[in-house]
Design a protein around this nucleic acid. Structure first.
Lengths: 146, 146
DNA sequence: TTTAATTAAGACAAATTTATCTTAATTTAA
DNA sequence: TTAAATTAAGATAAATTTGTCTTAATTAAA
């Protein structure tokens, strides 16, 4: 469903959010350890999230990645997915037709639309805040137990 | 959402079904032309569909691919997707965790479940027959206009 | 039985995604 | 101002997916 890059991006954003609640910046190393992802690849994804304004980076000593506390509740999964995978999840045809719309639909256009609308709704209504709070409370987890 | 292989597999199956209604077998060449896909790659996917019993192949002169008429209404999209992409669409964790269940869910487990269940339901309740009939009636299309 | 037509299979190649490594640029603090 | 700590960027490599090509195996019909 999502690319690996997107999976890492979501998990990294959650971990950054958790730490930003406490005013702490985190490094790619910490992030990669906490979400069980390849560090250098994760760093690339963080760069993309910074470019898209989802997270902030501070260079130099005592630097790291962070998210403005007041933004955490406003950031939706859709923004993270969009920053990394683009909008193909919204606009792409289920069967890969270049143009697929009501006028000239692919065979699964209507059926696919229901599923995609559900996905879209989920992404647009799920905030980083609620995901981060669930991790903090122990209701969900960022990686498999070692 | 689906792999290219899966997209081609679905479109190919629909085209084969349409022709099987009329008792005609079709070749990989015809199929690839009709669904606008790379021929040799499509042939590989057809082999997988044959191995999984979704379609039949007949070698030699006057051979080609076909589907038993009586099966067309019974074949569901889920069988095609499963033959090509496996069951990861059903069992995989939205964030790639190796184990993700009610006991130890990933951050999007519940939210993702709703979307995946919708997709699963769609795939399991959409028959090759209805997709093929919609193409025949001109209500949907297998490729973009040239 | 032979030939022509066809799918099957496997080796290969290209493109994309995932992952790593090295160096540059920036920033804070001493 | 210098040094240390950090992210940014770009080159490279590995893995996977997508796509191609050649040859083998099979089959129907003449």
């Amino acid at each position: 469903m999502f690319s690996k890059a997107c999976e890492y991006g979501i998990k990294a954003s959650i971990f950054i959010a958790i730490n930003s609640f406490e005013g702490k910046r985190v490094s790619p190393k910490e992030i990669a350890e906490e979400i069980d992802s390849p560090q250098a690849f994760t760093a690339k994804i963080l760069q993309a999230l910074v470019r898209h304004g989802v997270i902030n980076s501070v260079k130099g000593a005592y630097g790291g990645f962070e998210i403005d506390k007041k933004d955490i509740a406003l950031i939706k999964l859709s923004q993270i997915v969009n920053a990394i995978d683009g909008d193909k999840i919204y606009n792409g045809c289920g069967l890969g037709l270049h143009t697929c719309d009501e006028n000239r639909p692919c065979p699964v256009h209507d059926k696919f639309k229901v599923v995609r609308d559900e996905l879209k709704h989920m992404l647009e209504h799920t905030s980083l805040e609620e995901l981060a709070l669930n991790i903090k409370s122990g209701a969900s987890f960022l990686k498999t137990i070692t």
